[in-house]
Amino acid sequence: MIAFLVQRISHALLVMFVISLISFAIQDSLGDPLREMVGQSVSQEERDALREELGLNDPFLVQYWRFATHALQGDLGDSYFYKEPALSVISQHLPATLELVICAALIIILLSIPIGVYAAIKPRSPLSKAFMGVSIVGISIPVFLTAIVLIQLFSIGVTVHWFPQETGWGAWLNDFFSTDGGMPSYGRGESLVHLFGSWDTNFLTLNGLNHLILPAISLASIMLPLFIRLIRAEMLEVLQSDYIRFARAKGLPMGRVYFLHALKNTMLPVITVGGVQIGTMVAYTILTETVFQWPGMGLMFLEAITRSDIPLIVAYLMVVGVIFVVTNTLVDLIYGLVNPTVKLTGKK
């Protein structure tokens, strides 16, 4: 176990080192701090002197060492645009993204497990087939398009007049297919409740929760089909195994067999895939936040790119890198703990 722990953690540190190296290389080749610090009027000699003083003429490795030691102390430079430390800019945007991800994760967990299990228990029922059909369509719809469709349907509203309005059923059908709109689709709303530090929450007011609904559904929509399909596939495999047949033969109630015995072993691979998907989730927050103008890290990153705010881009990469590495390592460790059959030394 200790060997496994050491191996995973050293792996994580190595990955973090590579990420910091890449981030620094970006900063080194793209950012010119002098251009940001001094105006046009400063002469070339003064520039050169300043350059020497700031240590910009030092060898790459010396500069990287300085960058890394600063980074370890939590200093990733100042954002050009916000004129404050990049890390504190990120911490101001982090809560919005976290709340969005938490909501989406809740939706995914609460829906994918029952649907996946049902589709595995009754693979031939029309409802299961409908779920699987919808899920392959769901995988094929990019997340930003889901978001746009949701905005059109529930924020702007759709009035349908495909059916003759004069007849009663036509009016009813038109009414049935029309949507009111009016759901908020822009930003986090006004009524945020301050928790602590830079954390303002959407969770505590009705208006705040309302603002969360559409973005959270959009973000969940891309992962949900994936998890339904995965849970179904794993569950089908588990249901074939001997211990399930034995439990059935013993006469245990089917609900107990499915949800206690089978689901436990189904969730093992789901944990690993879920861990990997957290990375994908961060990428999709960028898309979701762009559509809904949700003031989180993703939108901040995209704005930093258009403003060429290099320190902020680099800081975002480092923070996201830490999030990935920590979650991946944790998932590996948890998986090693819950599944004793994993060879702990890590040979596949």
């Binding site: 990997v276 998907q277 990375g279 994908t280 961060v282 990428a283 999709y284 996201v320 990935f324 991946n328």
Partner: peptide, 8 residues
């Protein structure tokens, strides 16, 4: 690379 997701 895969743990970072291809889109990222």
């Amino acid at each position: 690379q895969l743990s970072f997701s291809t889109l990222m």
